[in-house]
């Protein structure tokens, strides 16, 4: 009997090791360990053995069975692994095929610039004010010390809709609005970004363009404060290395008035095409609020003073993103718009 068991063990082990797939392995399992299997049959035949022999043979059979079961399970795992491997290989995809795109929108570069400016000035305690685009002559000009017939009005050929109403030519109009609206005639710190309109249309001028106006009214405001503020502003927008140059100029609503140049960010000031070899680019108008403007809008110029500044946002956006032609900003070619979809800190 022992001989027979050994035989079964030897043959079955050979068969297990030779099994080439899951099914064969299962058949082998049934053949030897199943209810009608050969090893099971040996166990059944044990009733004919003597009491002494029974546990000995039983022990041998169980050992062989454990051994076979282990082998089968090991072999089974091998098959499962192979099967998984095969399946994984079969499922392999081309990862370089295009993704299912989440459509990404984009913010217009001009609004990106506006938002950057808003965030900067809000962080310094400025309010962001939105003024009307359809403005009255009174707020756009007269309250800014620009009476009718003033020669400086020539600089701003305007779109009137009646003799007294027009599309605003400058965000400066909001200065007067804020001063008038401020009931307690106390300090003001505000910026106003927005659309402005003038009758001109060529390669470098659009009849519709954008400005941001800044106004600070308080006691003890100085020209040095204006310089400091514009330095922070321009460094934020154009880089830490940016330098400013103030040039005397004239705006009826500020006294003194300055045009402010920034050092050319393309050549760093050594002279290039962008700055017309001067090293400087004219970017802002600024000055100390004219006492007439304070008076006309309810402030006492002996008590309060302030500074105001304004800049064209279209050019700022062009400089910031290296946009080569202003008309791109208004053409809205989606190939242009889609470029502005990246985090921009």
């Amino acid at each position: 009997m022992e001989e027979q068991i050994k035989n079964i063990e030897e043959i079955s082990i050979k068969e297990i090791l030779n099994a080439s797939n899951e099914k064969e392995l299962n058949d082998i399992k049934v053949k030897y360990l199943g209810k009608k299997g050969e090893l099971t049959a040996v166990l059944r035949g044990m009733k004919d053995l003597s009491k002494e022999q029974r546990p000995i043979i039983g022990g041998i059979v169980n050992k062989v069975r454990d051994n076979l079961e282990n082998l089968i399970s090991k072999k089974g795992k091998e098959f499962a692994e192979l099967e998984l491997k095969r399946k994984l290989e079969e499922e392999k995809i081309d990862v370089t095929l295009p993704s299912n795109k989440f459509i990404r929108g984009s913010k217009h570069p001009l609004n990106r610039v506006i938002e950057e400016i808003e965030d900067l000035f809000v962080s310094m305690g400025y309010d962001v004010i939105d003024g009307p685009e359809l403005e009255t002559d009174e707020f756009c000009f007269e309250r800014l010390n620009l009476p009718k017939g003033h020669p400086a009005r020539d600089m701003q050929d305007s779109f009137y809709i009646t003799s007294e109403e027009l599309l605003r030519t400058q965000t400066s109009a909001v200065q007067a609005r804020v001063m008038v609206a401020n009931q307690d005639k106390g300090p003001i710190r505000m910026i106003c970004p927005g659309k402005t309109y003038r009758k001109e249309d060529d390669a470098t001028h659009s009849h519709q363009f954008n400005q941001v106006e800044g106004l600070v009214i308080d006691k003890d405001i100085t020209l040095a404060h204006l310089k400091g503020t514009l330095e922070v502003f321009m460094k934020k927008m154009l880089g830490e290395k940016t330098k400013l140059r103030f040039r005397p100029s004239y705006f009826p609503f500020t006294e003194p008035s300055y045009e402010v140049d920034v050092s050319c960010f393309k050549c760093g000031g050594s002279g290039c095409n962008l700055c017309k070899q001067t090293g400087w680019i004219e970017l802002l108008g600024a000055g100390m609020v004219h006492p007439n403007v304070l008076k006309m809008n309810g402030y006492n110029p002996e008590e309060y003073g302030g500074f105001a500044f304004g800049t064209g946002l279209d050019r700022l956006a062009m400089f910031k993103y290296g946009i080569t032609d202003m008309r791109y900003l208004y053409r809205n070619d989606v190939r242009f718009l889609k470029q502005f979809d990246q985090m921009d800190i």
Binding site: A224, K227, P248
Partner: peptide, 23 residues
């Protein structure tokens, strides 16, 4: 200002009370 040289004036930020800018 202009004959003294505005570019000789050093810029500083105004010292104003801290407040939250609104918009």
């Amino acid at each position: 200002g202009r004959l003294y040289g505005v570019n000789n004036i050093e810029g500083i930020l105004p010292e104003l009370p801290l407040k939250q800018g609104s918009f």
